[in-house]
Amino acid sequence: MALRFPETATTARQRLAFLLRLKKRVEMLHNLIGLWHREGLSRAEWDDGVEESRVGGVGATRVRFPPSIRARFAYQPRITRAQFANMIGREFDGRMTEVLTAMAALEDQFHLDASWDGDIDLDRITEDV
């Protein structure tokens, strides 16, 4: 499994913004699998997805399984706990690891970036006690 950035994500800031949204989408993929186990999915929901507000998002964008998952798993109205655990292991864990690894690498890059040092004044932060 490998992560590819969009061609338009060239700066560290753009890539971080992309990764934050991608992480949210991976979390919603987890929750779509969870919804399939807990409540089941209709054939229409399997084909067209569900509103992201049902799987941890806030908008009306529909979230559906990517083609690779739809090719590997046949539709059924509801999956068992064992099937849920299997899908999380096969489809969620690897994707989340890739995203988190990329985020950590980017974070390390930011940590080492001293370009802001001239603007840093530690007294801009005061403890509210």
Binding site: K23, E27, H30, N31, I33, G34, L35, H37, R38, V55, G56, R81, F84, M96, T97, L100, T101, M103, A104
Partner: peptide, 20 residues
């Protein structure tokens, strides 16, 4: 790495968020 997952249900099927 260490990863923290927060779920809304005891069966841990609905993820609220994560951090690593």
């Amino acid at each position: 790495t260490a990863t923290l997952y927060i779920y809304s249900d005891a069966a841990r099927t609905n993820l609220v968020g994560s951090a690593a």
